[in-house]
Write a protein that binds this DNA or RNA. Sequence first.
DNA 1: CTAATATCCTATTGCTTTAGTAGTTTATAT
DNA 2: ATATAAACTACTAAAGCAATAGGATATTAG
Lengths: 145, 145
Amino acid sequence: MKLSSRTRYGMRAILELAMEYGKSPLQIKSIAHREDISNKYLEQLIAMLKSAGLVRSVRGPRGGYSLAKPPAEIRLKDIFLTLEGPMVPAECFEHSEYCPGCTDCATRQIWQKLQNAILGVLESVTLADLIDQSIRSKKMTNYHI
Amino acid sequence: MKLSSRTRYGMRAILELAMEYGKSPLQIKSIAHREDISNKYLEQLIAMLKSAGLVRSVRGPRGGYSLAKPPAEIRLKDIFLTLEGPMVPAECFEHSEYCPGCTDCATRQIWQKLQNAILGVLESVTLADLIDQSIRSKKMTNYHI
DNA sequence: CTAATATCCTATTGCTTTAGTAGTTTATAT
DNA sequence: ATATAAACTACTAAAGCAATAGGATATTAG
């Protein structure tokens, strides 16, 4: 079980934007270079984030992308669901009419628990929290050196 | 984000075996029929569970499959990891030499949290727990009718 | 011994998703 | 005007998923 590149790249990209929040917009090529991601592929991922209302854009020279909201108002859950799609462990979560035997109900409860656990973590963390963590860990390394 | 059929089918199949624990072995075709899963595909899934030591088999007429251990000693984590493969959110979890920028470290901590949350749930539940839940929910419906 | 049964093993296939590439169009700052 | 950078659309190679197919092997019953 692993996360898709889409989600990993997208998360790193939006974190770059979060760290630049309040400054001038960041360009695709700049983010792509910093994070070592394909230019054109990143373009598509950021388009997803944009249509989800998490990111806004400015076209033309000196244009680029920036966060649509303060980092403290963007939860990882929003980013995750935008990139990874809706969380649907089993068919019967979408179509309740599917679910023939009652054996499923026992397993279904587990998938429900799993979903809650995942969404719980992603709900509880904002981009601002991530930045704080990042800064703190950098300070730690400085103290050691 | 959704679970693979492999995992969903496999979980339902081994739960069937768990409910039959102590009795004579269950055959592929029987499980496949009860759970409405392709015969041949299920065969492969059960082979995975067998090579993981969760299930044992008897060949020939009146043969079939049964749990290798009591239901209380099989955790969902074991089943899940067998079917879904190792939990590797990002490359740097396998190859720590990968991890160029420090931006990753912030996201990496999130993937770690996510992993812990998922494994935590799966670690805490055994097949015996699932059977208990299943029986209890059946009783509930009986009371209502 | 033989026939039936059910697991075991390997290969192949169609399908979908993923990750990435390519090229053109549109808006905007200078 | 021109350069810049996002916006949009189409395409493609590769991988994984969900099967399907067919024969080999072991075991039991008669």
